[in-house]
Amino acid sequence: MTVEIAVVGGRGKSGRAVIESIRARGASARPVGRAELRDPVAAFRGADAVYLMAPNMHPDEPGLVRALLAAAHDAGVPRVVHHSVAAPYLPEMPHHLGKAEAERLVRASGLNWVILQPCAYVQNFLGQLVGSAPELVVAYDPDRPFGLVDLADVGEVAAAALLGEVPSGSTLELGGPDLVSVRDVARVAEVVLGRDVGVRRTSLQEWAAGPGAGLDPRERDWLMAMFASYDAQGLAAGPLGVQAVLGRVPTPLALVLERELAP
């Protein structure tokens, strides 16, 4: 009998990576989005596991996860994997705190659970690396350290967890093989692209008046808080979670960029 996995947020960037890895392992995966979540019990019924992933910057992730856990119980789903974030308890970042509280709810759910804590993805920078004059523009110190991770690695780890290859009760931080900065990303991208890649820091005020101008004020404030935290300390995360599950080191930055930026 084919294993069936329900992936909340399965039509987004992260969800598509998870579904691709599930299917590569011979299991069946179905995306669960806003339409399906009008009746989450029906959306989850028949699933062997559910991937719990809130939309980015969700205003009430604990409330959403609480409802999804209740639906999983009612649908008879035995296993959940929660997509959290590296360093969830950072009081200066409201959306991280929401994930920390959601983790608490998952742990208290009575279900078999695994929690994944991925760092920021290498892929988050790809949009700025295309075109004839690539430039990485960030509203924080471009030399701060990050454990940038390959989204494909996160998808593989998630699939393994959903298919029972990760022991229940595990919390795994998912970072890349090395701590890297935005400037490191630019330097590696220069080699891959064969052209100069600029790095420019913009102020929070400039960002708010430019890219952030059209956002909901709450989301804009949360992102500014995130940038301020990144400016102070970056977001470090280590490679051991990926390595323990996949049996190899996480995909290095250069290989990710070569794969993603190949013509």
Rank of each mutant, 00 (worst) to 15 (best):
N124H: 05
Y51C: 02
V77E: 02
P134I: 01
T2W: 03
A262W: 05
P94C: 11
P62C: 13
E258M: 10
L174K: 09
A208Q: 15
V114F: 07
G234D: 10
L129H: 00
A70H: 05
H83Y: 09
R195N: 11
V256S: 03
V85S: 05
P59F: 09
Y140Q: 02
R25Y: 01
G198L: 06
A47C: 14
A72F: 03
P217K: 11
H82Q: 14
L174I: 11
V106R: 12
V154Y: 00
V154T: 06
P211E: 05
S109W: 04
G164P: 02
R107P: 04
R30S: 01
Q123D: 05
S21E: 12
K99Q: 07
G33H: 01
R23N: 12
D74H: 13
A225Y: 07
A254D: 05
A75E: 02
T171C: 09
A209C: 10
A86K: 04
K99I: 09
V41F: 06
I22P: 01
G10E: 10
P31E: 00
A228R: 15
A87D: 13
A24Q: 12
A24S: 15
E165S: 09
R11D: 15
L261Y: 04
L223D: 06
D150Y: 00
V249P: 10
L257V: 01
V130D: 08
V80L: 10
D60P: 05
L52Y: 04
M53K: 12
R187G: 12
L52R: 00
E219H: 14
L148F: 12
D48A: 15
A228P: 14
G98Y: 06
V245Y: 01
Q117R: 11
V122E: 01
A24P: 08
F227S: 06
N56F: 15
L246E: 02
F44P: 00
G247E: 02
E20N: 08
V245G: 03
R259V: 02
H95Y: 13
V65M: 02
G63E: 02
L64R: 02
L215H: 09
S203L: 15
L111H: 14
V185A: 12
V18T: 11
